[in-house]
């Protein structure tokens, strides 16, 4: 199953690595990653597509737990 992720991250050291690492460790392979720092300089906006066998709620909850993850939405790819 493929999922689209929309994330807002605190722009802190390690934030991107934590998100990518968490997705992979929880069984979701990144297929595409795109993002940019926000104009205020304090946040990243990240869009990802991942593929995995587990339910989207697992990924949503695990990413939500990250200290630098301010908001995350996970949706099945159409």
């Amino acid at each position: 199953m493929r999922y689209q992720l929309d994330l807002t991250l605190r722009r802190a050291e390690g934030a991107l690595l934590r998100v990518l690492g968490t997705a992979e460790r929880r069984g979701f392979t990144p297929l595409s990653v795109d993002g940019e720092a926000q104009p205020d300089g304090d946040r990243w906006h990240l869009r990802m597509t991942v593929e995995g066998e587990r339910g989207e709620h697992v990924l949503q909850q695990q990413l939500s737990r990250l200290h630098d993850c301010l908001a995350v939405q996970v949706r099945p790819c159409p």
Binding site: E13, G14, L17, R18
Partner: peptide, 14 residues
């Protein structure tokens, strides 16, 4: 160390 411990900490600072 920051990178090594990313998966095994609740959070980290440098």
């Amino acid at each position: 160390v920051f990178g090594m411990t990313l998966p095994i900490v609740k959070h980290s600072f440098l």
